[in-house]
Nucleic acid binder design. Structure first.
Lengths: 256, 256
DNA sequence: GCCTATTAAATGTCTGACATTTTGGCAACC
DNA sequence: GGTTGCCAAAATGTCAGACATTTAATAGGC
């Protein structure tokens, strides 16, 4: 691919990096393809070589491209991407059409991880964590009835999941919560768009969130784990990806 | 802290970054402290400002420091570190005396995550994955009897855990496996040092690894989960951190 | 006493030249 | 003819110096 399709920008290496990264994430180049040379980028975007080099350094750090002196810049395969790099999640927010396979992979990860985190939260949650969870849940409840407050509802939803990761009181899981934030937002918005949000689906989702909160408050680790799994299963249903191969079947223990 | 204690280096911004990062990881500065200025670093290490800026850019990307024009560079708190950044794990290998609290946090994470991954592996493992696991396990078995092959034994041990993450067939968990590699190595070596590796402990550890492999081969997800938890519990015992508050009690379902 | 202009000090940016690495071609040699 | 060696082109990497911008402290005027 050439640079012809890419929009211009206001300035700053960060924004240039974001621009190029999103083009790469959208699959505009194939793995192994040659990436434009520094000077071409300079002329196309009318920025200094400095800015270009800084931007490309970010792309290199996240494993999106590989640069070697004399040979040039080539784009790397998905398996080489550093999906857990904060820059990467930043670049993913509001991505128009992310690779559906990638979305499934990330959701499958969440599906396996978040129940465990909810279990940890049930064991480690302090008063402040419970307050945060409660506030988010009450916000979701308040905004559930009014269709006008859909955006606000989504925010409370994200806050709820974030609060679960925070309540685990583990440094690594907290990081993970941060990183998953964009994916969670995207999934919520996407599920809001797919299903037409009849009361049925929304009430069900709300109830499932409530059972997670309840279990954590009771400090019932196993119940929190099950309840969190149920929340994600609801999301999977709304997205219509519940049968995707990347997602393990819901609960093997219930049907041996 | 000043720069007086830091050793010199052969050259290259990467190595400079590694040097400074390890000093930061070892806690030579307190959060909020001022970090040396660019020009001071230039004179002390006799490198160009370019190299220094590149090195500091890496430290900024991993959340170790924060830089603002005019104000200077300050070191950030542990909670701001990007523990899941590949650079970070690279810098952690062979760290002399890592913060014990940090070690506990990472181990607690592994303790909650790895059983789930083993469960996924039981569901998703292909022939090649089983071969990898088998090869690693047989290597561990072969090298278990000879005390001279301790280093080799550790390598096979790491390969075994790596193979579990690979067998999950999930992009994110695979990344995680890569990132945890240094921590796993450190833990294995540390546990080898702590306990004097009587036959008893080693045989027990080997047997527990074997049960994981067995369960994955049987495609028994629940059993793999339990077995992986047992492996980690053995490690925790050998390290003497089994009673640390950051580690959840082994299996809440067994004592409700 | 408060507000403002100045200054100093730090990081950020630009530019041009040069260094290094890789690749490919061309020519000489066996 | 095939191999080797060398040179040139093209790409990224590095350097040095000047300059811009931001921030905080400080001195001065009212």
């Amino acid at each position: 691919m050439t640079l012809n399709g890419l929009p211009h920008h206001r300035g700053g290496a960060e924004e240039l990096a974001r621009l190029l990264a999103r083009a790469l994430l959208a699959g505009h180049w194939q793995p192994g393809d040659a990436f434009p040379r520094e000077l071409d980028l300079c002329t196309h975007f009318t920025v200094s070589r400095n800015q270009v080099r800084n931007a490309l350094a970010s792309l290199t750090a996240t494993g999106l491209i590989e640069r070697t002196a004399g040979r040039g810049t080539v784009v790397r395969a998905v398996t080489d991407w550093h999906l857990l790099d904060p820059l990467m999640s930043e670049w993913m927010v509001g991505l128009a059409d992310p690779d559906p396979q990638l979305v499934r992979e990330i959701f499958a990860f969440r599906y396996s991880a978040e129940p465990v985190v909810a279990g940890l939260a049930a064991e480690a949650a302090a008063a402040a964590d419970l307050e945060r969870l409660e506030a988010a849940f009450q916000g979701m409840t308040r905004t559930a009835s009014e269709p006008a407050a859909r955006g606000l509802h989504a925010e409370y939803d994200v806050a709820f999941h974030d609060a679960i990761y925070l309540a685990s009181h583990n440094l690594v899981w907290r990081q993970m919560g941060h990183l998953l934030r964009p994916s969670i937002i995207a999934l919520i918005e996407s599920s809001q768009a797919h299903v037409h949000q009849e009361h049925e689906s929304l009430d069900d989702s709300l109830a499932r969130h409530g059972r997670v909160l309840e279990a954590i408050r009771r400090r019932d680790s196993a119940a929190a784990e099950r309840a969190a799994r149920e929340v994600l299963r609801r999301t999977a249903i709304d997205l219509g990806i519940v049968d995707a191969p990347a997602i393990p079947h819901p609960d093997p223990k219930e049907s041996p």
